[in-house]
Every structure is written in structure tokens, then in C-alpha cells.
Design a protein around this nucleic acid. Structure first.
Lengths: 348, 348
DNA sequence: GCGATATGGGAAACCGGTGTCACAAGCAAG
DNA sequence: CTTGCTTGTGACACCGGTTTCCCATATCGC
């Protein structure tokens, strides 16, 4: 009877494996980590015992010895559930079959000590790295904080926010430009715009795309064709009411996200306007709601899950790919999805 | 110059604090963990150094020494983003300001080796505990697996699935009964029902509620007034088409979730029917979409976030409350939210 | 047959905390 | 002045891995 027998119920440790296989801890460690300097016999024997015992290395002990854990964090303050979940899916896809796990951390943008809160989170947990979701990813002080603490990070955003190694971005500006161009090609010349909230990079980029397209087409519009929104359904509804009160009123409205586009649709419906006959609507994001409302919404598909996957890959690559420096792209293209919410403008 | 000086960049360790404060590791540990057997002077001095150095205990080392980590897992296979995110919020609210973190793990219900996959997840990470979301929480083998492995768990569900200490449930059956009774009180006597997918406890409970209400009101309906759905928008649409093809057709339809209710709405619209004038609709869940569509949907609010919070509390209580055995309730009430999608039936 | 060189494998230190126990100091009781 | 108890603190082993270093053996060239 060995002095140190395995307690029932508790997990087998490396010592158990070593004892039963008749080798040292280190050899077991070598087998588990696939060291090449091993006799095939030894390897087989140890593997046999590992399998039989169902031995799984203790991640805490590993993390301690390696001075590095295998947790990647997702810091977000995005109110859109679809988006957040897609990002989670993307990250999880990237770390599937690796030893990494995903730890989520929503933060409150409004909170005064938000940055301090995140610092504590990062320092306490000593995460391997974090993915920063928009809009909080646009916060430069946060990125600076990560650098200070020495925590790897990747920022997701609507424009180039950081060095390629530390960000993944989508080309919102171009995508919106194309969407507006599509409306113009359909014959629209009075196009309303519902913006995102002030200070958000995505809002700025999307608006720039809007202006690019108008300028390219030589269209001049009064400032009033741009209404402020804040990415919520209600704000879209309110903004649309303002736009539809204009005279002449717009024949098409681009909303900076789908949720606001749904609000625009609601506003149109309340006035008895038919979409797309009386008013064309284009959204942004291609959330499920876009295809579930009536009429299905023409919108810009934002490859958020792919971006998230890539972000996680950038974070973990150094470990999994053995310094291979596979360069994951840092720019992702959004594309226009044409559904039924756009038609040529009504003849006056 | 101490032999073991702190490297720049790396975090201070307990040894650094001990050395600088002129005490032993153990004393620092005592201070950090708030042991009462301490001289006030010593405590002050150590706290001073801790603060000055910004010392934070290494969670991996702690986890190793305590043979217990501070990660709680969320295992889910729920396709509804709103629901999943609400559950995450609930859990996070419960563990706010504790040392626990949330690790998410979506699983694929279709996958043959799903259980094995989850076992690996649980064994590898040695989580403190897991919250099991519906529908996978209804899987008894999974609960059995948790017990075998010795992993604490709490199942969320629509009925009593387990001992009170291991579950939180909502009273779906009663809630649906009340909702249907409300329709009956409005004058409806032909009420269609769109069910959830076969084998889901929530689907069964909701259907039982439906039948309870009809029976209580003495209403007999043909079997065809119940149409199968699977909680997706499309299935709701299809089910509604079948129901609306009936003659006489129902004057009200209850859908077992909001997404399907949205599909029902869509189907009605396609036929040129007005909601609620020609058809009343009631959903279940009270997801944001319910209040964003037109007309706003009368639906059953399911206190999912509260349930999740409670689930997490049950899990962590033993640690944070020092065996206090605060009994967190295990039953939560769903309530009917009355909006504009219900009206008395049209006169024939 | 000899030393030189790979190669497989083990002993012990270490990662950064916590638990156990011993011990010293202070103080009351005998 | 001992004895005994309480209180505050430290030494040391331990959690379960990895890393460093070193030794034993097998292989090789001469």
C-alpha cells in the first residue's frame, strides 16, 4: 500500500500516474506535453495509465507553474444581446479544442470608476488576454491600461483603432457608402439618416460613409436630414418622426443599426405609410430581427462573429501556433444584404 | 539588496509584501484574508505595504492551495440570445464584488458526444459550480454527471426538476393558464396554441397550462387547434398558417414563446388580417422584440434574470455566507404583461 | 576497448499562495 | 516562581504541476 494513495472521489494527480506507471512526475509531464525526447515504450506505458485513470492536469497548478493562465476575457458594454452573443460565439469557436476558456465581463459605461473596475478585473484574474468589444473598445485609456498592466488585448471596432496586432475592424464607412449608393441608384434623392450616439466611432464612421455617398453623387441636403439616435428602438422611432415631419420628406431612411431601423419602420407604420412603397428603409448589423420583421429589412451585414473569432485567434496564436505569426487579417468587409424594405421612391 | 528582488513589470507577490513589511508570508496571508488574530499594528503595517505595492493575491495559487477555484460555469444550448444574455446578467449580478467569475460554455444539443464534451469541460476546469440553462437543464443524465464528478450545479427550468437546493423554476403552467383565462375572459372561445418543441419541459408545461384553462372554462376544441412549433420564428409562422386555415379559425392564438408569436403576427399580416381586431396574439418570455413590434405583444414575463441570479447565489452561498444557509427561493412567478395584441374577438 | 557524445529519465527547486503546528510573550491563577 | 492559558507570529510542508540540472546508459569514432 503506497503511502500516498489516491483518495476516492478526488481527481488523479500526476503523482498517481507516475507511481502507477513506475516513472517520475517529470516523465508524465513530458508525455502529457508531448516532449519528443521520449522512449516509445515509456510513452505508451504512461499514456495507458493516463487513460485508465482518466488523468487530467490541474489547470490551476499548470497556470501557476507556467505563470500564465488560459482564460480569455470579454469586456463589453454593448446593449445588443445578439451582438454580444455573436461575439461570444466567435471567440468560443476560436478557442474550441484548446485549453482556453472564455470569461465574460460586462461593464457599465455610465459608471464613474469603470476603468478602475476593469483594472481590478484584469489584475485580479491575470487573464491571458482580453477582447474589447465596441463601443468600449474605442476607449483609448482602456487600451493604455491593458498595456500598462501587461495584458494582451484585441480591440474590435469600426475603424483602425490600434496597431494591426491589437485590433480587428470592419469597413463601416465603405459599407454605408455602398448602401446609400444603392438607394441613390434606386432613384432616391432625399435620404434621411439616423445616426448613432455621439462619440461612438461606429456612429462617426457610418455617418462619414453617408456623407461620402451623397458627395459622390453630388447630392446636397439640408442638415435636418440627419437625425440623432442612440442605437435604441425608441430613438429610431423618435428620429424617424422628426425626419418624416420634414417637407419635403425623405423617400428613404438609413438607420445606423437595425434596432433603430425597426423604430423607423414603426414610425412609418403609425403614419399609415407603406414600406417600401412610401418609404425605403436600410439598417445596419443584420441582426435576426432584420429578417423577422415585415418587410424584411435591407441591411448591412457586419461580420461580427468572424471578427471576434479572429480577435481571439490573434490573442491565442502565440501559444497555439508556436510563434508562427500567422497573420490573421485585421480588416473585415461588411456587405449589403438586399431584402424587401427598399424600392424606388414614390412619384410625387 | 535582497536576494529575491521583485522583477520589474511582474506583479508583486506575497513574498515581496512580507519582506518589505518585515513579517512572514503567513502573516500577510492573514491580513489579506482578514484573520481576527492579529495585532492592529501589524495589520496596519502590512496593509500599508499591500496598498503601496498594489499587491493582489494570485488567483491560481490561491485556487491551488485551497483546492477550489472561483469560476462558475454557464452551460447552455439556448438559441435565444436575449435569454442567454439575461441569464448571464443575472449570474453576474449575483457574483458582483465576489471573487467569482463567469465562464460560458455553449454546447451543441445535436452533437452525439455532447455529454462527454461537458464532462471534459467540467473535469478540466474543475469549476466551483455550474448553472444549467434550459433546455439542456432538463437533461437528467447531465445532472447525474455533475453529481458523479462532484461539481455543484443548479438547474433552471419550467418545473421542479430536482431538489430545491439544485434548481430554480418558474411556474409556466400557471402563468399560461392565466394568460389563456385572460383570452377567455375577453370573449374568445376558439383559441389556437403553438407549442414548443417535443420533449422540452417548458413546452410541456405551457401546453398543460393551456389545457388547464380550457378545461376550467369548459371549452372543448378539436386537436387541430394545437400546432407544433419549435420556438423559432419560422415555425411560428408555419404553425399560424395551419391554424388560420382552419374553419372556423381561431380568434386568438397563444404562442409558446415570443419569437413564434412574432411569426404568428407575420402570418396574420400576410393574410391581411389586423391584429388585434381580427386576431389576438399572446406570446411568452417578454423579450425586447415583444414590445418593439407592432402591435406591442401581450406576453408572459418570465423572470429569467432573477432566476439566474438566484441560481448563482445558491451556488456560491456556501462560501460567501459562511454556511448561513440563506434559503434562496426555488420558485419564481411569471406574470402576464398586457399590451395591445389582444382584443375581444370579432363578431362573426 | 576507450573516451566523447547523444539521449532518456530522475531529484529537487520552484510557482505563490494556504494549512498545521510550534513557539514566544503576556498575563492570570495557584 | 512556576504553571497554564491566550494571543500573535513564524517555520515548514503542501497544493499539482513545470523547469533546471545532473546522472546513467547507449551509441559512436578511433
Amino acid at each position: 500500500m503506497a503511502a500516498k494513495n489516491r483518495e476516492n472521489g478526488s481527481q488523479p494527480t500526476i503523482n498517481d500516474v507516475a507511481r502507477i506507471a513506475g516513472v517520475s512526475k517529470k516523465t508524465v509531464s513530458r508525455v502529457v506535453n508531448g516532449s519528443p525526447l521520449l522512449n516509445d515504450d515509456t510513452r505508451k506505458r504512461v499514456q495507458e495509465v493516463v487513460k485508465q485513470l482518466g488523468y487530467v492536469p490541474n489547470p490551476q497548478a499548470r497556470a501557476l507553474a507556467l505563470r500564465r493562465n488560459f482564460l480569455i476575457g470579454l469586456v463589453h458594454d454593448n446593449p445588443n444581446a445578439q451582438t454580444v452573443l455573436k461575439v461570444q460565439q466567435g471567440i468560443l469557436e476560436a478557442i474550441r479544442d484548446t485549453e482556453f476558456e472564455l470569461v465574460v465581463r460586462p461593464v457599465d459605461r455610465g459608471m464613474a470608476n469603470m476603468l478602475e473596475d476593469i483594472r481590478q478585473f484584469l489584475e485580479r484574474q491575470r487573464l491571458f488576454g482580453v477582447v474589447l468589444m465596441p463601443p468600449i473598445s474605442e476607449n483609448d485609456s482602456l487600451a493604455e491600461l491593458c498595456r500598462q498592466i501587461g495584458c494582451r488585448y484585441v480591440r474590435m471596432g469600426s475603424a483602425e483603432l490600434d496597431e494591426p496586432g491589437n485590433m480587428v475592424a470592419s469597413n463601416d464607412r465603405e459599407a454605408v457608402r455602398d448602401a446609400i449608393k444603392y438607394l441613390i441608384d434606386q432613384g432616391h434623392s432625399r435620404i434621411g439618416f439616423v445616426s448613432g450616439p455621439h462619440g461612438f466611432r461606429s456612429a462617426i464612421e457610418r455617418r462619414l460613409g453617408f456623407e461620402d455617398a451623397l458627395e459622390a453623387a453630388g447630392i446636397k441636403q439640408p442638415r435636418s436630414m440627419i437625425a440623432d439616435g442612440n442605437y435604441t428602438f425608441e430613438s429610431g422611432l423618435l428620429a424617424a418622426e422628426r425626419l418624416l415631419d420634414l417637407s419635403p420628406r425623405p423617400t428613404a431612411i438609413f438607420a445606423s443599426n437595425d434596432e433603430m431601423a425597426t423604430g423607423v419602420l414603426q414610425a412609418a407604420r403609425r403614419r399609415g405609410m407603406d414600406v417600401p412603397t412610401d418609404l425605403s428603409i436600410v439598417g445596419f448589423d443584420d441582426t435576426p430581427i432584420a429578417s423577422h420583421i415585415w418587410p424584411p429589412l435591407t441591411t448591412v451585414r457586419w461580420p461580427i462573429a468572424t471578427m471576434a473569432r479572429s480577435a481571439a485567434l490573434k490573442l491565442t496564436m502565440s501559444v497555439t501556433e508556436g510563434e508562427q505569426e500567422v497573420d490573421e487579417p485585421s480588416m473585415f468587409l461588411s456587405t449589403l444584404i438586399r431584402r424587401s424594405s427598399v424600392a424606388p421612391p414614390p412619384r410625387d
